[in-house]
Write a protein that binds this DNA or RNA. Structure first.
Length: 281
DNA sequence: GTTCGACCTAT
DNA sequence: TAGGTCGAA
């Protein structure tokens, strides 16, 4: 059984799931919705104004999941290299906006956009010795003007964020409902929103809606499949996937990796980016 | 159903 | 070029 302190905080934060985190001295300070979290490896300490166990998916049976996804050597190596990496259960609205902002951008730029949104639309909150801006509330962002969003340097994503926020504010998107639905239905619903395609929908589903069979296929994932799984997923190439090809490939991926495919994606993604010395937060 | 160019911004 | 998506042809 994995011990609770086997969580590697730095590895988990720096695995592309979350963006609103900063390392201050020895501790990682981050925002999840209206909550502030302070995580420290040594001496080990996890503090949150919200529910830290929920955030770190302490309810998952990690031993069982890791065993289940250890189907091949590549995944086993990835797990070994990033031991202590956890999947995170994020605030759904923040996750939704974060990955809408992620399209055709870099981690550093995504972080900057989200920080701008927090500074402009978030509420100042104190926790521990820190005072920082929380993530904007749905209603606040839904009422933001296009110019205000453009001021946050969102670029072409500004109208996506505006419409996406309106959809949540009007209950056209209801995260509590999406959480109850099956993977396919939830994905279909998310993809009705402007700015959400297959990849972004998978990220939202995996990181905030408990859809562990979601397996976001981005440029990196595609390279991974080509490099290590060429023989298993024959039709994968370096070219961008069309919508139908993405869906077909995803089906095959779930058949191969199983119901916890999303966990395997996270380990593989982390491994390959580290291997290529790509920077994180 | 697929292909292709455009798209904000920062490095 | 970067962790995509949209709209037109």
């Amino acid at each position: 059984m994995q011990k609770t302190d086997s969580i590697n905080i730095e590895t988990t934060i720096n695995s592309g799931q979350v963006f609103l985190w900063n390392k201050i001295g020895e501790q990682w300070v981050g925002i999840d919705g209206q909550d502030i979290m302070i995580l420290r490896q040594k001496p080990y300490s996890l503090k949150s104004s919200g529910n830290i166990d929920n955030f770190l998916r302490r309810d998952d049976n990690l031993e069982k999941i890791l065993k289940n996804i250890s189907t091949d050597r590549t995944v086993r190596d990835a797990i070994k290299q990033s031991s202590g990496l956890r999947l995170i259960r994020q605030d759904p609205f923040q996750c939704y906006i974060s990955f809408i902002c992620s399209s055709n951008s870099s981690i550093q730029n995504i972080k900057s956009m989200l920080e701008n949104l927090c500074r402009k639309f978030g509420v100042k909150k104190e926790f521990g010795k820190y005072q920082l801006h929380t993530f904007p509330r749905v209603e606040t962002l839904a009422n933001a003007t296009m110019n205000e969003l453009l001021d946050c340097r969102l670029g072409f994503r500004a109208k996506y964020v505006k419409e996406a926020s309106l959809a949540v504010n009007s209950n056209k998107i209801d995260f509590k409902e999406l959480r109850k639905l099956d993977y396919q239905t939830a994905i279909r619903s998310l993809k009705n929103i402007l700015g959400i395609g297959n990849k972004v929908a998978d990220c939202i589903a995996l990181f905030s809606l408990d859809k562990l069979e979601a397996f976001p296929i981005d440029r990196w994932t595609q390279r991974i499949l080509l490099k290590y799984y060429k023989d298993i997923f024959c039709d994968v190439s370096e070219k961008p996937l069309t919508e139908k090809k993405y869906e077909k490939l995803h089906d095959d991926i779930v058949k191969y990796f199983g119901p916890y495919a999303g966990y395997s994606q996270q380990f593989l993604f982390k491994m390959e980016r580290d291997l290529n010395k790509k920077s994180w937060l």
